[in-house]
Simulated scan of single mutants.
Amino acid sequence: MPKHPIAVELEAINRDGETQVVRDCGLPVQGYSVYLRAVEASGLALATWIADYDTIGPAYQLAERLSIALAIPLTVLVPEPLMPVQSGPAATTGVITMAN
Rank of each mutant, 00 (worst) to 15 (best):
P89L: 14
A45Y: 01
Y53E: 06
A71Q: 12
A51L: 06
V34I: 12
Y53T: 04
V76D: 07
A90N: 12
R65W: 04
P58Q: 06
A47Y: 04
T48A: 13
L70M: 04
I50P: 01
V85R: 15
L74N: 03
Y35R: 00
L74H: 04
S67E: 02
G43W: 00
D54C: 09
I72S: 03
T48I: 09
G43D: 00
L82I: 05
I68D: 09
V34N: 08
A90S: 14
A51D: 10
S87R: 15
T93W: 12
W49Q: 03
W49F: 13
P73T: 05
G57A: 15
V76R: 09
G88K: 11
A45W: 01
I96P: 04
A71T: 08
S67Y: 05
E40H: 07
G88E: 10
G94C: 07
M98Y: 11
T48W: 08
P89N: 09
P79C: 06
S42I: 00
A71F: 01
R65C: 07
A41G: 01
R37M: 06
E80N: 11
L74D: 04
V95I: 14
T97Y: 12
A45R: 05
L82F: 07
E64D: 14
L82W: 06
A59L: 08
A41S: 05
G94I: 06
A91L: 11
M98S: 13
V76C: 09
Q61A: 15
T92D: 11
E64L: 15
P89Y: 08
T93Y: 14
L46K: 10
P89V: 10
P89T: 06
A90W: 13
Q61V: 14
E40F: 03
I68T: 09
V78C: 07
A38Y: 01
R65L: 13
P81C: 06
G43S: 05
E40Q: 10
I56P: 06
L62S: 04
V34A: 07
Q86V: 08
S67W: 03
G43A: 03
A41P: 01
L74C: 02
S42W: 00
P73D: 00
T93A: 15
E80W: 05
E80K: 15
I72H: 02
V95T: 14
A38H: 02
E80H: 13
P84E: 11
A47M: 09
A90L: 15
A59Y: 03
G57D: 15
Q86E: 13
V39I: 11
L62M: 08
T97C: 12
A41K: 04
A69Q: 11
R65E: 14
Y60D: 14
P89R: 14
P58N: 05
V39R: 01
Y60G: 07
E80D: 12
D54L: 15
S42H: 01
A41F: 00
I56R: 06
A47G: 08
G88F: 06
P79M: 07
D54W: 06
T55G: 12
A38F: 00
S87F: 09
T97F: 10
P89W: 08
P79W: 05
I56Q: 11
L66V: 01
L77C: 09
M98W: 08
G88S: 12
A63M: 11
L82A: 05
G94A: 07
A91D: 15
E64Y: 04
A71L: 05
E80A: 15
E64I: 05
A91P: 05
T92R: 15
